[in-house]
């Protein structure tokens, strides 16, 4: 593998990747659930940085807005609402046999993934559809007055693809969100008829 160590992006990648991994470890290892939640926010920020390195700007923005901004706020809200205390340290290491087994299996899993990824052949490149082969790709929208109409730029491309090619899934997801909203309200509602 030829790595251009001079590329700044590689250094940025290492930094952001390190943030992600470190914060993830903190999520699962810290006893205090509030600290876990905060670490997860940090992990999401790091991941957004990785997306940005990859030039997936739209997704990086969405990551910060939706995940770090909405979902994690919700989680911290719940943690505060339920007044979740610190877990005792021993909670994590209950039943040593089971823990050993889990650790072993997961590490095996990790090993499989990494070795497979590194030893696999070149990832095939499919011919571009509705886009050029440039990193900053574009979406062909058709012809207008003899000139090809193209949506350029990451956000435009993703938007064009969403609303033109993947319109049906988009609508279905909106229905899903509606269902989720109603469901969440129904499940969490306090039943007024019963005494708690």
């Amino acid at each position: 593998m030829d790595i251009d160590l001079n590329q700044v992006s590689f250094i940025f990648f290492l930094v952001f990747a390190g943030i992600v991994v470190g914060a993830s470890l903190a999520v699962i290892l810290h006893k205090n659930p509030v600290v876990s939640a905060a670490s997860l926010v940090l992990a999401f920020f790091g991941l957004a940085g990785v997306y940005a390195i990859m030039n997936a700007i739209f997704i990086a923005t969405m990551q910060v807005l939706v995940y770090a901004g909405a979902i994690m706020v919700l989680v911290i809200f719940v943690v505060m609402l339920l007044s979740l205390r610190e877990e005792t340290h021993l909670e994590i290491w209950k039943n040593p046999l089971k823990q050993a087994m889990i650790v072993l299996f997961v590490l095996v899993f990790l090993g499989i993934i990494i070795s497979a990824v590194n030893y696999s052949s070149d990832i095939p490149k499919l011919p571009p559809q509705n886009g050029t082969s440039q990193p900053d790709y574009a979406y062909n929208l058709g012809q207008k007055e003899g000139l090809p109409l193209v949506a350029k730029g990451n956000t435009a491309t993703v938007g064009a693809a969403t609303f033109l090619e993947y319109l049906l899934p988009f609508e279905l997801v909106s229905v899903l969100l509606l269902a989720a909203v109603i469901g969440a309200v129904v499940i969490a509602k306090r039943d007024k008829l019963r005494n708690l």
Binding site: V66, K125, G131, P169
Partner: peptide
């Protein structure tokens, strides 16, 4: 990004919505 397809990013957009 590696196959220069935009479909993957669209999927991720939907996954985020569903995760929410």
């Amino acid at each position: 990004k590696s196959t220069a397809q935009v479909g993957g990013e669209v999927i991720v957009f939907f996954v985020m919505a569903i995760a929410a």
